[in-house]
Amino acid sequence: MDSGAIRRRLARGTAVLVASGLLALASPGSADAAPTQCVGRKVKVLPFGTGTVQVYKRNGYVCAVTLAERPGRRTAMSVSVQARGNRPVVDSGQFAVRAGPVTVHAGHRCVRVSGSVGPQSISTGWILC
């Protein structure tokens, strides 16, 4: 095979990869495919009046996300995870769907999780010990 044929094959392969990547980014269901963006096993669901905090755990890491009960309109939302002995990791602001995800390395330590949507909130004591 001469060098021209190799270059053509590489160019064709690159074009296919770029096109498939663009299609994956443009697909309408891509936002719904991973609503939380946390990895691991869901270990807690903390419902409250205006939303829910979901807590995930994997390989010593704890991840949390706050989901609004009625997504769509931007409102004050927050999520916080704190491993015992460390400072909390917080994501807060004006969001339409969710706050977070926030992830901390907890190892075998307890964590404290809190979240809020609008005026209502939830907070745990030390959990996952």
Score class of each variant (00 low, 15 high):
Val81Tyr: 11
Ser114Leu: 06
Ala19Asp: 05
Arg73Glu: 14
Cys129Ser: 09
Ser92Thr: 10
Gly118Ser: 01
Ser30His: 13
Gly125Ala: 13
Cys38Glu: 02
Glu69Phe: 02
Val102Ser: 03
Pro35Thr: 03
Ala106Pro: 08
Gly4Asp: 15
Gly4His: 12
Leu10Asn: 11
Tyr61Val: 00
Pro119Tyr: 04
Arg112Phe: 01
Gly125Lys: 14
Val81His: 12
His105Thr: 02
Leu25His: 01
Pro101Leu: 03
Gly72Met: 13
Ala68Pro: 10
Gly85Val: 09
Ala34Tyr: 12
Ile127Ser: 10
Gly60Lys: 13
Arg112Asn: 10
Arg7Trp: 06
Ser27His: 08
Ser78Asp: 12
Val39Phe: 06
Asn59Gln: 11
Gly118Met: 02
Arg109Cys: 01
Ala33Trp: 13
Ser20Pro: 00
Ser3Trp: 14
Gly13Pro: 00
Val62Glu: 05
Phe95Trp: 04
Val53Arg: 12
Lys44Gln: 09
Asn59Cys: 00
Val104Trp: 01
Asp2Lys: 11
Pro119Asp: 08
Ile127Gly: 08
Gly29Met: 07
Gly49Asp: 11
Val62Gly: 05
Leu23Gly: 04
Lys44Tyr: 09
Gly115Leu: 11
Arg74Ser: 14
Ser116Thr: 07
Ser27Gln: 15
Ala34Cys: 08
Gly115Asp: 03
Cys110Arg: 15
Cys129Ala: 04
Lys42Gln: 14
Ser92Tyr: 07
Val16Leu: 11
Arg41Ser: 09
Cys38Tyr: 06
Val111Ile: 06
Gly118Asn: 01
Ala15Val: 02
Thr103Leu: 03
Tyr61Gln: 07
Thr103Cys: 02
Arg8Phe: 04
Gly4Arg: 15
Leu46Ala: 05
Ile122Met: 08
Leu17Phe: 06
Gln94Pro: 01
Ala99Thr: 07
Asn59Met: 05
Gly29Val: 05
Pro47Ile: 02
Cys129Arg: 13
Gly21Ala: 11
Val97Gly: 00
His105Tyr: 14
Leu22Asn: 11
Gly51Phe: 10
Lys44Phe: 08
